[in-house]
Nucleic acid binder design. Structure first.
Lengths: 282, 282
DNA sequence: TTAATATCTGTAAAAAAACTTCAAAAAAAG
DNA sequence: CTTTTTTTGAAGTTTTTTTACAGATATTAA
């Protein structure tokens, strides 16, 4: 927390501000985008106070003055601001298409990090490390996330199972036991196969972890631990591409947490698995 | 191109600057981080020129003045600045782990976008649209990227083929023909299977597209079109997680380009494929 | 090469913005 | 109700930015 965003600083100091500082604070929080173009006098007029109070406001949250405050605020609001309109358009130039896609994906990562519940993630990591058996469930694009998770878990020495076929997934779920962990992945949280598998897993006494997009969905009913990702519509009003990226990043974070929880074993496993595939390289 | 970063603006104007403006431009590009704290006079002194020239420099790249320039630069350098040290450490708190992973992934997207060769991407998109048959080749993590590409291409109405088994991949490559497109995916660019498949594809007269990490590698020998991604080491000195994210983003951009090149068909395909999977949802 | 023209550059003055000071007003304490 | 403390903005000061202009430099044409 060495370098909090200036918004966090304002929020935190909110109760220590004097009345006129509070007015400034609220105005800044609501109109941060415009302020970058205001002089100190303009801002003072907008909130009906004086230059001196604006300066005092900036100093009270730790900046050298108004300039310093503005520069730092510009840095903090940068990413969101650059995002343009992420909706693709048939008039877009190739550059614009790429920018929109990449910016949307960066934005969704940023948002996912913001809503990430670290406690849940830790809990999930502990459950995975302790699991007798790990199975992953997902359809369509989410199946790929499952396979990616399997691949990454294997790299740190944990064996897990993924089945492509929906029936086999369900059958396998119905044979889980207490001590096993079932990880259900569904962007919408409404995929019948996945919901069914998680229900079966839970009935069997297995622990269930669910990865899905923020919001209410049938899948949540059967989840012991829920890991939410953010979302962002892009190409053709479809949000699945950004959802995929966010889920993969979540998998990365989860696996890193698992690996750091069992550091030496993981390091050993990484060495082993790397050796195993190195023969296949030039 | 509505809202280029100020660095791009400087780069683009480089040949139009006068001598003293050029000096300023180079100083700014190299010391952008310090400049935010400089007054116009300080900057003028550093590059041994005058205040007036600095103002002229700012105006020539489209800003209202020095302040405006500084504010906008602050926005543009924000993300890189926040990146901390991405190397994971066993002392890291869970928050830090997540931050490092997500920031690294955002950074790699940013870098990939920066090195993206739009002309190549367009060329690849055109080749894919025109292809008689599309086959994807990859091993390990890259196989998943191939499957993701297949999934996304199918969503916009293009059928493609991926084989899991390395032998089957090679056999299939050996049966390609002129007019077919082979897409080889390999993070390192040194995977024997993938290199072999691309070589076979090229021998057979198929067109070859390669997705790999920036740098020299055996795979490039057999590529008609190369799409590079950036890289960033993170967890346990492994760069594969960030590489995966970058490649998926690249696939998204490629597919979007393909889709916008054949807009109406794509829209139809998206509708059809969505309907096809909707039965499986609550 | 030289003169004419255009372009570039820094100085110095003007304007604008940021910051300080201080006394009056408001709030809190006694 | 008075005293003390805190808060506040008007007016003044300093700093920074910007403009205007004239000298320097480069470019072109003869």
């Amino acid at each position: 927390m060495t370098n909090q965003s200036c918004f966090v600083k304002i929020e935190n100091h909110l109760k220590f501000f004097t009345n006129s500082e509070k007015k400034i604070a609220h105005y800044v929080l609501e109109n941060y985008n415009d302020i970058l173009n205001y002089t100190i006098t303009e801002l003072a007029e907008k909130v009906d106070t004086s230059d001196a109070s604006v300066i005092r406001f900036c100093r009270s949250i730790g900046y050298k003055g108004y300039q310093d405050f503005k520069i730092n605020m510009a840095r903090d609001i940068a990413p969101a601001n650059k995002l343009l309109d992420p909706e693709l358009d048939r008039e877009d130039t190739p550059e614009e298409i790429c920018q929109k896609i990449f910016f949307s994906e960066m934005a969704v990562l940023k948002d996912t990090l913001a809503i990430l519940d670290i406690k849940m993630l830790e809990k999930a990591a502990k459950m995975i490390v302790a699991a007798k058996r790990i199975e992953l469930f997902g359809s369509g694009g989410s199946a790929l996330v499952g396979m990616d998770a399997q691949h990454k878990l294997l790299k740190v020495g944990l064996k897990s199972f993924v089945h492509c076929d929906a029936d086999i997934q369900a059958m396998s779920a119905s044979l889980l036991e207490a001590g096993d962990v079932a990880i259900g992945i569904s962007h919408s949280g409404s995929n019948r196969n996945v919901v069914r598998c998680m229900q079966l897993a839970k009935q069997q006494g297995a622990t269930t972890i669910v990865m899905t997009t923020q919001g209410k969905s049938p899948l949540l009913k059967f989840a012991d631990v829920v890991l939410f990702t953010a979302t962002k519509e892009t190409a053709f009003k479809s949000e699945s591409a950004t959802a995929r990226i966010a889920q993969l990043a979540l998998v990365d974070a989860l696996v890193a947490m698992v690996a750091l929880g069992d550091y030496d074993n993981s390091l050993y496993a990484i060495g082993q698995t790397r050796k195993a595939t190195s023969d296949n390289k030039f």
